[in-house]
Each structure stands twice: as structure tokens, then as C-alpha cells.
């Protein structure tokens, strides 16, 4: 008897630069709509926010590298469980709850984002060659 893994298995896609259909829409119709994907060797996390929009951002938190696959899907974005850094679907950091009151540091922090859209029943991503960060 196999137990369903709590984090979906990674999806690996290698393709030339351009728009590529990476998954069917149904793939994200799971209780926790988050899937790790590796596009041309770049480790990313695909998720759907509370507005129903898609995010496709770097998998490791820019703070200290924690794995955002285990992030909290809340407040219309993805929140790292290590220190609560919160990212919107574009990868922009919008909150750092442990930083001193009034700190503007979050504005200077953004996880690289891969363009992503839904059409024709599929999820499409704009791939770049290799790891360009």
C-alpha cells in the first residue's frame, strides 16, 4: 500500500526557451495547490493563491534557503515557515514579521519569478535556458 506523499513529486521539464505547457490544469486541483517543478534545472515552486492566480517562484527562501515547498499557503501568497517571510505570487517579499517595526527591508527582497499562465486547460511557463539567477 503506497501512502500519498504529502508533497507532490517534483515535475522535471527541460525545453528550449519559450512558452511550454508544463502541467494539466487538473494537476493543481489538490487539497494544497502547490507542486515543486524543475524547469531547465531551476528548482521552483508552482502554487495557486487565494485569488485563484498562479505563482511560479524560486523554491528556496531568499532569507536562509528554507524549502518553500513546505510553506504556508495563506494571506494570498506563500509564507516561509522558518521566520514567516511572506511572498506574493510574483515572488515579491511583502512581509518580514520578525524584522523591527517599520523596517523597509522587505521591499529590497524578491524571489525570481517565471512567467506563468493558464490556457487551453493547461499550465504554461516561459522557460529560459538553464539557471540564469
Amino acid at each position: 500500500m503506497t501512502q500519498q506523499t504529502p508533497i507532490p513529486a517534483e515535475e522535471f521539464i527541460d525545453a528550449p526557451t519559450g512558452w511550454v505547457r508544463i502541467l494539466d490544469r487538473e494537476a493543481l486541483e489538490i487539497a494544497r495547490p502547490l507542486i515543486p517543478v524543475v524547469l531547465n534545472g531551476q528548482r521552483l515552486v508552482l502554487f495557486r493563491d487565494e485569488e485563484g492566480e498562479l505563482g511560479l517562484i524560486g523554491r528556496n527562501c531568499p532569507h536562509r534557503g528554507a524549502d518553500l515547498c513546505y510553506g504556508r499557503l495563506e494571506n494570498n501568497g506563500l509564507r516561509c515557515p522558518f521566520h514567516g517571510w511572506h511572498f506574493d505570487r510574483t515572488g515579491q517579499c511583502v512581509e518580514q514579521p520578525a524584522e523591527p517595526e517599520g523596517s523597509p527591508m522587505y521591499k529590497a527582497i524578491k524571489v525570481p519569478m517565471t512567467p506563468v499562465e493558464e490556457r487551453d486547460g493547461g499550465i504554461w511557463a516561459f522557460l529560459k535556458d538553464g539557471d540564469t539567477t
Partner: peptide, 8 residues
């Protein structure tokens, strides 16, 4: 000046 810093 206003842009976020790169990841790497």
C-alpha cells in the same frame, strides 16, 4: 536604487 537585489 529602488529595485530589489538579485537572489544570487
Amino acid at each position: 536604487a529602488a529595485e530589489p537585489v538579485p537572489l544570487h
